[in-house]
């Protein structure tokens, strides 16, 4: 915030920069993000009802019980996809990019990720894909991504 830059008068419009340093904690989800740096993709299995989550969570949303970490298979299939030609401001330099929902064999829910494919290739539902891991960890969910198997 602070002092604004005058954009126009009648009405008076000023523009100010709105930046904040925000400390985002992954808290109980931290083991998932740490594991990505070791080339491991973690999901969760409910200790009580056995539901297997493709996206890591520490407590089961069906019965409230704690979950165990499970190793997800690195191979999966495209459940749905979209290629983004526009985005939020933060990812403007990344377009176009493809997002997929990944289904894993024997796992009850999905995982969202980016899919990298060669130009000329088209994503499709049911496509076999495999997880890859970033060489230098960013400590974001982008540390894992998928490519065609």
């Amino acid at each position: 915030m602070g002092y604004g830059r005058l954009l126009k008068i009648d009405p008076v419009v000023v523009e100010w920069n709105y930046n904040i340093e925000y400390r985002h904690s992954y808290a109980e989800d931290s083991p998932f993000f740490m594991a990505l740096g070791r080339g491991r993709l973690l999901g969760s299995k409910c200790k009580s009802c056995g539901f297997k989550y493709g996206t890591y969570r520490k407590y089961c949303m069906y019965c409230g019980s704690e979950t165990d970490d499970i190793e997800l298979p690195l191979h999966g299939k495209v459940h749905s996809f979209t290629t983004c030609y526009y985005s939020g401001e933060t990812f403007r330099g990344d377009v176009p990019y493809t997002l997929v929902l990944v289904e894993f064999p024997g796992v009850d829910s999905l995982f969202m990720s980016r899919l990298f494919i060669n130009s000329g290739e088209k994503p499709e539902i049911g496509m076999d894909i495999v997880a890859q891991f970033k060489k230098f960890q960013t400590f974001t969910v982008n540390d894992v991504y998928f490519v065609p198997a």
Binding site: T55, S80, F81, T82, C84, Y86, S87, G88, T90, F91, D94, V95, Y97, L99, L101, M112, S113, R114, T140, V141, N142
Partner: peptide, 15 residues
């Protein structure tokens, strides 16, 4: 899990 991927609402509805 979603926004840092470049997730935004048009993309979610597109999925």
């Amino acid at each position: 899990f979603d926004y840092p991927l470049g997730g935004f609402y048009t993309a979610y509805y597109a999925l």
